[in-house]
């Protein structure tokens, strides 16, 4: 206890930050999960800041759900350190889990019980849930996900989206410090997707840290403050959303009838012109796409184009979208990495 606070970083200089750094809701160091010889999670250093909405991205089979299972103590790590809400896992599992709400790999409920019945049973399984407020908390949670009217119906009669909502209600039975939502909008209608987004935002505004795993990039872009990208068991990028987007190359899109000339100018500037999406614009012009602005000032490019007599009808600089960044990080292939 009387060790100086710098001891950890001195003894482990290879670590950027010592395990247990404040301000992180989830932190892993060299987390590995092996099934037989195959590493489903291969040494990841995940850092989820407190109060963030962390988008956990990755193609199918990249290890997102496995990571979540290990974080929540459902599976044991093969090696590596894990801290959740500042406590060492899995040793502190029993004291951490009551503060964590989770939806892992789809909802799981008893088909022969009603929505209310299911939540009552799950709440009763938690020793920390007080039984006097149980009924009230269950009906509040159901109301919050829009299942108030279907609360008495058997789960057998629920649609996939309704089960998903029930799973979300279960995650919110008690005020939580951390919510782990694995594919929360799976099977939801557009209204449901919007509601989940609003729900996540309002929870985050209340100080709850939310880890959302998803492969719906547009959704992640809309609600997350931080992003981590998994690929084949490795965490290939993580950080604030803007930083990750900015790391990708921006494009310039030129709208001009003088395609040949513009291409020549762009090539001279060191850009790579290519076919632009959206040829045949309202003015009957063709756009030329230069990949990357290579650190040049956009106005300098316009000036060069105009000086060479290119009739510039439109000029836009587009930042790399999360999707492009995602594909550049995880590869183009459609095949699941096994």
């Amino acid at each position: 206890m009387n060790k100086p606070p710098t001891a950890a970083s001195v003894s482990a200089p290879e670590r950027a930050t010592p395990v247990g750094s404040p301000g992180l809701a989830i932190e892993t160091r060299g987390l590995v999960k092996r099934f037989g010889h195959r590493s489903a999670v291969d040494g990841i250093d995940l850092e989820v800041p407190c109060g963030s909405v962390f988008g956990f991205l990755g193609p199918n089979g990249s290890g997102k759900t496995t990571t979540i299972r290990v974080l929540l103590g459902l599976a044991s790590a093969s090696s590596g350190d894990i801290r959740v809400l500042g406590k060492e896992m899995p040793q502190a599992l029993a004291s951490v889990l009551p503060d964590v709400g989770a939806l892992v790999e789809g909802p799981g409920f008893y088909p022969f019980l009603s929505g209310t019945g299911n939540l009552m049973r799950l709440d009763a399984a938690d020793r920390h849930g007080s039984s006097s407020t149980r009924r009230q908390r269950v009906s509040d949670a159901l109301e919050r996900v829009g299942l108030g009217h279907a609360a008495g119906k058997k789960v057998r009669a629920y649609s996939l989206g309704m089960k998903q909502r029930l799973g979300l209600a279960n995650a919110m039975l008690r005020p939580r410090e951390l919510l782990v939502l694995d594919e929360p909008t799976n099977g939801l209608d557009p209204q449901g997707t919007r509601e989940v987004r609003n729900l996540v935002r309002s929870l985050a505004a209340g100080g709850t840290t939310v880890l959302v795993s998803s492969h719906l990039l547009a959704e992640v872009e809309q609600m997350c403050t931080h992003v981590g990208v998994m690929s084949a068991g490795r965490l290939v990028a993580q950080g604030p959303l803007e930083e990750l987007g900015a790391a990708g190359q921006a494009h310039v899109v030129v709208q001009t009838p003088d395609v040949e000339l513009a291409s020549r100018v762009l090539r001279r500037l060191g850009l790579v012109p290519g076919e632009a999406p959206g040829t045949g614009s309202p003015w009957g012009t063709t756009a030329v796409l230069g990949t990357g602005i290579n650190g040049r000032e956009p106005e300098a490019i316009v000036a060069a184009l105009v000086a060479d007599g290119v009739r510039v009808r439109g000029f836009t600089v587009e930042n790399a979208s999360l999707e492009e960044r995602f594909v550049s990080l995880t590869g183009e292939g459609f095949d699941v990495v096994g």
């Binding site: 299972r69 929540l72 103590g73 459902l74 599992l93 029993a94 889990l97 009551p98 964590v100 989770a102 892992v104 790999e105 789809g106 909802p107 799981g108 409920f109 008893y110 088909p111 799950l122 709440d123 399984a125 938690d126 020793r127 849930g129 279960n170």
Partner: peptide
């Protein structure tokens, strides 16, 4: 089989107790 085991453990029910 129902998928309820993971939610019971996350509640947390505790493995010995369960």
């Amino acid at each position: 089989n129902l998928g309820t085991l993971r939610y019971l453990l996350l509640a947390p029910a505790g493995r010995i107790r369960l």
